[in-house]
Structure formats: C-alpha cells, structure tokens
Design a protein around this nucleic acid. Structure first.
Length: 334
DNA sequence: AAAATTGACAACCGCCAGAAG
DNA sequence: CCTTCTGGCGGTTGTCAATTT
C-alpha cells in the first residue's frame, strides 16, 4: 500500500485554528456538508489539509458537542466502559452523547487515570494495585524512617519512637479498611462463593469458605460504593497527623476511606471539623492506646471495636454488606 | 516580578480497515 | 485479486494558562 500523508503538501498551515478559519469551516459545512474531506479545504478557502479540517470539525466545531465539566455520572460511565472496552475511545464516546473520543481520552489521561491510581486501582486492568500493600512494606518503611529520622524529629528518643509506632498502627488500620472495601466489592460479585465475617475476638475479616477476598472489582470501583452521604463528593486532602513522618499518600487513603463510611458522621473530632474521610480515619497517633505497644504488635492488637465505640464506622452496615454467603448469592441468581 | 514547573486540552502523526476502481 | 484512496482511531506532542518557586 503506502500512500503519502494528506498533510505532506508544502505550505499547508498547522497548529491552532484561528476564529476566521473556524468560521470558514463551519459556514462551508453548514452550506454544503463536508463531502470529501480531502477536497473540502480548497473549496472552503482554507489552507489546511482535509484531515485537519475533519478533526477540527468532529472534535470542536460540531454543533452537537457538549462543552464543560464532566458530570459524576459521565465519569462513572467512562470508568465502567473503559473497564470493558479498554482504550476504545470512539466506542466509549458512543455511550456519552455530545462527548468526543478525543475529549474523553484527554479527560481519562489527565483526570480519571490519576483518580483511579489514588484509589489504589490500576487504570489499565481495573484491578487493585498490589504494589500498595502498606502492611507488607511496613517493615521497610519503618526501618527507613527510623534510620533517617529518629534522631532528627526534634523530640525525645522515646517520643520519636512512640510516634513511629503510632504511625505504624495507623497504617495498619488504614490497610485493614482498604481490604474491607475490596472484600465488600468482591462479595457482591458472581465470582465470590465464600462467606465473609468479622472474627469477634481478633476483629479480622475472615473467609469461612471458598476463595479469599478477590482483587478484581469488575464493573464496580470503590467509587461506586462512595458517597455514603448524599452530595458528599468533595475531595479535600486529609490533613491529620501532619507531624508524622512515615505516613505516605493520605490522599489515596482518603479516597478509599470515603467509601467505607456510612451512617451519620460527626461534625468534628477533637474540635477539628471533619470530612467524611476524617470521620473514618481520625486517630491520635501520639495519645492513642496503641502507641504504648510495639509497632508490629499492632497487627494482632488491632482493636477495630474502637472505631465502633467512637462512632467512626458503622460496622453493622459493613457486616450487612459483606455477609453474603454462597447460598444467598445462589438465591439471588435464581 | 520573573523563571520554572505543572496541568489541561487542542492538534498532529502514523497506522489500519474498508471501499472503490 | 491488487492497488489506491479515504475516513477513522489511538497514541503522542505542542501550546498556553495557571501555579509554584
């Protein structure tokens, strides 16, 4: 095959379109239709290649194009369609009237991709990112933090050690909350045949039958579970524990934690107004009881009942959602 | 106030599939 | 069946405005 690109002709203009060029193109198409794109520029008096004209028309000048910010519903639609179709932008755009494939592609690359990453989801596979297992990497984080900062935190060695311990426990709690979210999503999916329950003594999520909580969240991301409070979609960065040196990426945990809340949130905690995420996650890293234990004891001593006592999480809601059994799923199927 | 950096989005490039001769 | 043409698609780059240093 092999044909020369249509824009190889010398002297054709490239780059941003001027209002005059736009006007010429729109007036011509409104009067004559676009016909052959290759011949259009000459007929319309434009010093552009046909391809450039077609792109300008389809991506920007077409009258049925919807402008402005993407709505929450449109975002969800894009994420869901992308999980099925991958980077088939033109196909995805058919599900969003008024949006062009180029616009959706750009929005995906600049917003949604980042958003999913912050939620701990791989934007390519739509699976949970395994490289974010904080619990697994905790020993390394602590070792590095201890070596680098223990002598430079400005407090006494004891206080610094306690602070690190508190951060460690905090991290573990966050990890548990994140795991719960994924378990909830997995439990509501056909591939789940186990029964999930909270162990009364250890407060751990148990799988009594079948496979462990699954990583994949097909057709459903944590954001599907989000917005437990109507209209509560704000994404304020979490500002707790600002003096801590070893707690990474609160924004990500914020996103995950939001989807973990239900019920009525308190307006403030320790005199500080709370976001939904704060409500789920607030602990006092220095004064919390866990600070008196060793960092890794936290894995075993993690008492999630504290959250219930403090009205931070409505366990009833969570347990109701994750206590799907294979029987109940089969009932639903039939 | 100026320079550097970042983010958003428009536009371009190269490839491909299907239609037409 | 082969060749050429055309439109369309997805990845990438360029441009400009906003923000940060």
């Amino acid at each position: 095959m092999g044909r020369s690109p249509c824009c190889d002709e010398i002297g054709l203009k490239k780059g941003p379109w001027t209002p005059e060029e736009d006007k010429k193109l729109v007036e011509f198409i409104q009067r004559h239709g676009h016909g052959s794109w290759r011949n259009l520029p000459k007929k319309a008096g434009l010093n552009r290649c046909g391809k450039s004209c077609r792109l300008r028309w389809t991506n920007y000048l077409r009258p049925d194009i919807k402008r402005g910010k993407f709505s929450e519903e449109e975002e969800q639609m894009i994420i869901q369609l992308h999980s099925i179709l991958g980077n088939k932008w033109s196909t995805i755009s058919k599900g969003l009237p008024g949006r062009t494939d180029n616009e959706i592609k750009n929005y995906w690359n600049t917003h949604l991709k980042k958003k999913l990453l912050l939620m701990g989801i791989d934007p390519v596979t739509h699976r949970r990112r395994t490289d974010l297992d904080l619990t697994a990497s905790l020993p390394n984080i602590l070792a590095a933090a201890t070596a680098a900062n223990l002598g430079n935190l400005g407090g006494t060695p004891l206080n610094n050690a306690l602070r690190l311990q508190a951060d460690a426990v905090h991290l573990i709690k966050l990890q548990v909350l994140q795991t719960l979210i994924h378990a909830m999503a997995a439990a509501s999916h056909p591939s789940c045949h186990g029964s999930y329950e909270i162990d009364a003594t250890s407060s751990q999520l148990m799988v009594s039958n079948g496979s462990p909580p699954q990583d994949q969240i097909p057709m459903s991301t944590p954001s599907d579970l989000a917005a437990p409070f109507p209209g509560d979609h704000h994404e304020k960065k979490l500002q707790v524990s600002s003096e801590s040196s070893t707690v990474p990426n609160f924004e990500e945990q914020d996103m995950v934690a939001k989807s973990n809340c239900s019920g009525v949130k308190p307006e403030s905690y320790n005199g500080v107004s709370l976001t939904t995420a704060d409500y789920c996650m607030t602990t006092d890293p220095i004064n919390s009881p866990a600070s008196s234990s060793t960092p890794f004891q936290g894995l075993h001593d993690l008492n999630l009942a504290d959250y219930v006592d403090n009205n931070m999480i409505c366990w009833k809601d969570i347990i109701e959602q994750i206590s799907w059994t294979s029987e109940s799923y089969q009932e639903l199927q039939s």
